[in-house]
Computed example of a mutant assay.
Amino acid sequence: MSTSPTPQTPAPERRLPGGPVLQDSVTEAISAAFFEELASVGYARLSLEAVAKRAGAGKAAIYRRWPSKLEMTVALVSAVAVDAPEVADSGTLRGDVLAFLTEIAGALRHRLPSKIIPDLLAEGTRNPELAQALFAAVRDTRRAKATRLLDRAVERGELPADVDRELALDFLAGALYWRLAVVHTPTGPDYLDRLADKLLAAFAA
């Protein structure tokens, strides 16, 4: 998921076949309300009626855009993942890793993603349809962007061409997610620097 807590829905006003114009301002209000409601009650208790009320819109306005709670969740969460910026090219593997960790830490510390991400991961264990849709749209997108970080390091000669990318990707996010989202342990000012050094040592092993 992106660090952006209030994702934008960059869709211009559009008309459904034979239907009314879907106003961009209404779509954005519903999107913002969705994330606030999801963070507040979780996916299992999320209702489209509550999202509509929070957005100041009618329930019909939601159904004109998304036919179900599942499709709404996948569409909006996926949009955030796709819109997330590429990992900055600092010129060095360490700089890229540190930038990646900084972005992830920012998301996990924000009041919305810090609640939404663990909830959706837990819900995915109970809802295979949700898990499959989110994994394809979010996990694969994010891992593809992180893979380019490793590819750049290979091109620079900082990593061997046969580096285990799958394991490296698990290392990149795993420790930080465990610390901030699972055990909720505060980090010191040098934590990300120390973690980056450990990750580089692991990649080189």
Results as ranks from 00 to 15, higher is better:
31 S>H: 13
32 A>M: 01
33 A>I: 13
34 F>A: 01
34 F>Q: 01
34 F>W: 08
35 F>G: 00
35 F>Y: 09
36 E>T: 14
38 L>I: 08
38 L>D: 06
39 A>H: 04
40 S>L: 13
40 S>T: 10
40 S>P: 00
40 S>H: 09
40 S>Y: 00
41 V>M: 07
41 V>I: 10
42 G>T: 12
42 G>W: 12
43 Y>P: 01
45 R>E: 14
45 R>A: 15
45 R>T: 06
46 L>E: 07
46 L>R: 07
46 L>W: 03
47 S>H: 03
48 L>P: 00
48 L>M: 13
49 E>N: 09
49 E>Q: 11
49 E>R: 14
50 A>K: 13
50 A>T: 13
51 V>Y: 08
51 V>R: 07
51 V>T: 06
51 V>Q: 05
52 A>V: 09
52 A>E: 05
53 K>G: 09
54 R>K: 15
54 R>V: 08
54 R>H: 12
55 A>R: 13
55 A>Y: 09
56 G>D: 02
56 G>W: 01
56 G>H: 06
57 A>W: 11
57 A>S: 15
57 A>H: 11
58 G>W: 04
58 G>Y: 02
58 G>I: 07
59 K>D: 02
60 A>E: 14
60 A>G: 15
60 A>V: 11
60 A>F: 00
61 A>N: 15
61 A>I: 08
61 A>S: 15
62 I>W: 03
62 I>N: 02
62 I>K: 08
62 I>P: 07
63 Y>P: 05
64 R>C: 08
65 R>K: 12
65 R>I: 13
65 R>G: 09
65 R>F: 12
65 R>T: 08
66 W>N: 00
67 P>E: 06
67 P>G: 11
67 P>A: 10
68 S>A: 14
69 K>P: 01
69 K>D: 04
70 L>P: 12
71 E>K: 14
71 E>S: 08
71 E>H: 12
72 M>Q: 12
73 T>A: 11
73 T>S: 12
74 V>K: 11
75 A>V: 10
76 L>D: 02
76 L>G: 04
77 V>A: 11
77 V>R: 10
77 V>G: 10
77 V>I: 15
78 S>D: 09
78 S>P: 00
79 A>G: 14
81 A>Y: 01
82 V>F: 03
82 V>Q: 12
82 V>T: 14
83 D>I: 00
83 D>K: 10
83 D>A: 15
84 A>N: 07
84 A>T: 11
84 A>E: 13
84 A>R: 12
84 A>M: 11
85 P>W: 09
85 P>C: 05
85 P>Q: 05
85 P>R: 06
88 A>Y: 03
88 A>Q: 10
89 D>M: 03
89 D>T: 06
89 D>Q: 06
89 D>E: 13
90 S>M: 01
90 S>L: 01
90 S>T: 15
91 G>Q: 05
91 G>H: 06
92 T>V: 03
92 T>W: 01
93 L>P: 02
94 R>M: 06
95 G>V: 02
95 G>H: 05
96 D>N: 04
97 V>W: 03
97 V>E: 05
97 V>A: 07
98 L>T: 03
98 L>D: 00
98 L>N: 03
99 A>V: 02
99 A>K: 03
99 A>G: 01
100 F>E: 07
100 F>Y: 13
101 L>D: 05
101 L>S: 03
101 L>A: 09
